[in-house]
Every structure is written in C-alpha cells, then in structure tokens.
Design a protein around this nucleic acid. Structure first.
Lengths: 298, 298
DNA sequence: TCTTATTTGTAAGAATATCTTTCATATGAA
DNA sequence: TTCATATGAAAGATATTCTTACAAATAAGA
C-alpha cells in the first residue's frame, strides 16, 4: 500500500459523513464535532485532491459528480473496515475467559462461587484450567491465573483474592485420641500433597523439624486431596478458608495454624485485557472483598 | 455508518503498515514517522479494542490470530479507499481544461498561441467555449474565463492577460481618401459589432458624440467581425493587439485610439483548481508576459 | 561467554493537527 | 423586509501525534 498517496484519513471520513447526511451540521452531529470542523476537513480534502467535491447550493450543499464517485468508493472501503473491526469485537466477546488456578483453589473456592458469576453474566463463557503447573500467560492463551505464595515470598505488591491462615488439618477420625503438641508428632502420619509441589517438607523445615526418616506422602491433584482429607485418609497443609465450615462444625480439626500466611493473588496476561476478562476480574475482586468483610464480621 | 464504533483511523493505518511490513521500523519508514510513533498508535488501537494484535517475538514482532484477521479486512478496506482516490485523480487529470473566452479573443489572441501550449503539454486537453456571453464559473463547468473590461470599470485587482490600446479600425479600402478628424465623421460608416454588446454606441458616447440618427451596425460573432473588417466590410472597435501586424504593414488603419484602455483578465472558478488547470493558468501568464516584454521592446 | 548490532518499549516534551467559538454571508420562507 | 437556517472564515484553545532519548531484550558473531 502506498500510504503517501492517500489524503488524511480524517478528512476522508468527514467527507463520507457529509455525503451520507447531505449536510455539514448533520455530519458534525454524527462525528461529534461542530459543522465548522467538518467544513475545514472537507476543504482540506478538496485542496489536497485539487478537486471540488462539495458545492454550495442555496442554503445547503450538493456533491459534485466527482464527489459522488469518491463518496461511493470511500463508503464501501470504510464499511469493510468497519465490518472488520466489528468481527473482531464480536469474536472477542464470545471467546471464553481463559482462567488457570490450582485444582484445590478451583474446587474449594472458585467452584462454589462460579454460579454467581454465571448468573450475573450469562453471556461470558469461562474456560477453567485447573493445574498445579505455573502456566505462562500470553495473548491468545491463558488470560488470568490465580497463584499461591506464602507471605514471606511476596515482594512486589499483588492483587490478592484470598488471604488465609495456612493450616495443617486432618479429620478427627485420623487423629483419634492422639495428643498433637509439636510438629514432629506429625511425621508418623500419612500426608497428602499436591502433585509436583514440596509443601509438606517445606512446612516441616519452616517449623524447624529435622526429618530423620522419610515421610509417607501421597501425591495427588488438589481437589482429590480435599476429598481424601475429609475422608480421613491423611493430613495435609492447606488454606484454612477451604475448610472453614468443617472446622466450625468440628468435622475437621486444625493441628497447626499460621495466621494470614497464604496468599492467593491474581496475575493477568500482558497487553490489553478483553472487556469480558475485565468483567471477570471485577467479579473476582468483589467476591474477594465479600470474603474479607464476612471474615471481619465473624 | 456508525463512526463512533470505529477506532482512530490513524491507528488502523499504522497497524496495517505494521502487518504489511512485519516491523515497526519498516512501518515507520513507509508512513514517514519513527518506530516509536507506530508503536504508540498500535498500542492505542489495542487498548481501544481491548485485544492484543501484535506480540513481541524475539527481537521482532508477530501478529496474533486476531491481528491477522483484522489486518486482512483493513487492508482490503484501505485498498478500496486508495483505489477510489486514484480513480478520482486519474479522471481529474484527463478531464479537459474548460475555458471560455470571447470569439474575438479566441481567434485573434488564443488560437495563434494554443499550439505552443499543446506542444508543451500534450497530455492536457483543452475545451474552448468561444462566446460573448458571460458564463458562470462553477465546479464541474467552465473553470477559466478570460473577460474584458475597460480600465475605467476595473476596481478590484485582477490578473490581466492582455492590456491593449483600444482602437477604431478599418481597412484603408473602406476609408478611401476620406479625412477622419473627429469621431462624428464615423457615424456614416458601416459598423461591425459583437453579438449582444453595445460597444459601438458606448464608444460614441464615451467620445461625446450625440447620435442624431441610427448607426448602421451589423451584429455578428467576434471572429467573423475580424474577417469582415479585414475585407473592408466595415469599421469596428476592438483591441489593437488583434491587428498589430496589419497595422504595422499598413493593411489596416487605426482611426482612433485609446491607450491601454482594454483589459482582458483571467477569472477562475471558485474552489480548488485542478492541477491541469493550474498548468494552463501558468502558461497563460507566461504568454501574457512574453507579450508585454515584446511590446516594451518595440 | 561476552560484546555488538538490531529491534521493540517507554516517557517527556515538542510539533502539528484538529476543534470550538464567534461572527459573517447567503438563501428561502413567512 | 425580516427571520430562521445553513454554510464560510479566522483566531485561539485543545488534543493528538510525533520525535527524542534512553531502556530492555535478543540473536549473531568474536
């Protein structure tokens, strides 16, 4: 394309608006400018092309023969451009919001709330990718991820979704009558740990326990851990928020707790976010603040 | 057309240039701006559309899927616009220059010179409209007229083509041995006058002659008058320049003369002038100045 | 591995384009 | 004529767009 041959695009647009409306004032209204601005643009175009496009007629205007021919071409060109942009927006709207979280967070925090989102925004489809892997956020791929870090590791300011006590938790049936006074007491119990992580050994070292024999650790996806722990199959280290109800009711027992230690925060892909992604983000923050306030209430 | 839905046209153009060249630097070169300007425009577009169109890849860039789709549509839209503008310019170039002069001026001044124009600019066709009527200059119609006024009536500054003595002139054969001392002497001769004008009676009243009986006036187109006067069919009032050669050679005789009294000047249609019209105008002025200088020489 | 050349990314201020305001001019209708 | 309506023109205000200057990332070559 030889761009140097084209007159200023804004003047072409102004001229098309004049051709469509048949009036500078109406064209100005369509373009959200004054009649004078439209007139200047058209004059610029005429001078640039050295052709009269619009002539005054009585108290209105009329297009010249050349003006009509040009307007016809420009209209079809602009309408193709317009359609191209609209296609893009269209596909962008119906394209699902691509979200990645850990399996545990997905089942314990997100799933119970997701119905609320879908009832509020039935037109925005969601695509959830529950994985403990840290997936790369890039345009065209995952757009939002909710990541976990303990508070010691958070350096730059982040947007948290959930700040929770981190607890070592088990079903009372597993513990039985045992006295649990010290972390070291737990080395003999069966542990459940998220696939591909080292949460459990990290916790022991954080608590200063030196492991002299190997732990019994079953690795599995986070959502399965939650079920298994509830069944009494083992102990795990997780966010208190995921078991709040069971803790209250006594169905689950907290063995150790680190206050406000775990932070689930939002990460978004670089570049501009689609409108539907922004809507989801706002909803996420809203849910998060409801959480916090209800926590304050209790 | 709903213009409010369209992103800034300049940002669309920048994006197309990037899509075509595959690089900000090259796109900048094509658009005669810096790479930074292009980058800013593309970013503006992405933000406006809330879609990533271009992603960085290594030390270059790559279009996203959406970017490619949009670029395709935009390119076709812009190329239609481009073609529309080119069609217009094309037709504007080949369209003949529309010129109106009086028949006398056309035959006596313009025709002898027109060959020079056509040899210099063979691609610019001329359409000559020789008429004594004052035709309206309007876009799409006559673009240049050469008009006559005597110097008393010229008020606003004009662009003259020819400033000439105005003479009452006749062939020696018509006069014979008669002594012509006073304008009144001429009332008995046959006069030739441009159709639709009053030059002759105007001249008599200008010279203070009260006409007590009707003049013998034959009305005819200016070019025929010139021939008829040369044949000796009558007297006429015209520009000396039209008969310069015959006066020098004694073939025609000047009876009365008013120095630098007649002014032929250029009028152009309102609005912008086409390139070919401007070329013709420049040629006209050039011819005019050659005239003046040769007059000064003599 | 370290440098170098190349390209994109960012931000501040300069340059340019665009718009509004105001008044003037032209025209058709009452 | 006078009024209502529309375009035209010019000056100053506003907004956009661009350049400059530097930073960051990366691939190729020493």
């Amino acid at each position: 394309m030889n761009w140097s041959g084209l007159p200023p695009l804004n003047s072409l647009r102004a001229f098309v608006a004049v051709a469509e409306t048949g009036s500078y004032i109406k064209a100005g209204a369509v373009l959200n400018v004054t009649h004078a601005a439209v007139g200047q643009q058209v004059r610029t175009l005429e001078e640039r092309l050295s052709v009269s496009l619009v002539v005054r007629e009585g108290r209105g205007i009329r297009l010249t023969k050349e003006g009509m021919a040009l307007a016809r071409d420009l209209e079809s060109g602009f309408s193709i451009i317009h359609r191209g942009v609209e296609n893009l927006m269209e596909s962008s709207v119906t394209h699902p919001v691509q979200l990645s979280t850990s399996p545990a967070f997905a089942t314990e925090w997100l799933m119970p709330r997701i119905q609320d989102f879908q009832s509020k925004y039935p037109d925005i489809p969601l695509m959830l990718n529950p994985t403990s892997k840290v997936v790369e956020l890039k345009p065209g791929g995952i757009e939002i991820a909710i990541r976990y870090q303990d508070k010691r590791k958070v350096t730059s300011p982040v947007t948290p979704v959930l700040i929770s006590d981190m607890v070592v938790i088990a079903a009372p049936s597993l513990i039985g009558g045992q006295e649990i006074n010290h972390p070291a007491t737990l080395t003999g119990l069966p542990w459940l740990q998220e696939l591909g992580t080292n949460e459990v050994t990290d916790w022991f070292s954080h608590r200063g326990v030196k492991l002299d024999r190997p732990l019994m650790i079953s690795q599995m996806p986070g959502n399965l851990i939650m079920q298994a722990v509830r069944r009494g199959d083992g102990v795990t280290y997780t966010a208190r928020a995921f078991f709040e109800a069971e803790i209250q009711s006594g169905e689950m027992k907290v063995l150790f707790s680190e206050p406000a230690f775990g932070i689930y925060y939002i990460v978004t892909s670089p570049g501009p976010l689609r409108a539907s992604v922004k809507v989801f983000l706002n909803w996420l923050k809203e849910q998060s603040s409801i959480d916090s306030s209800s926590t304050l209430d209790s």
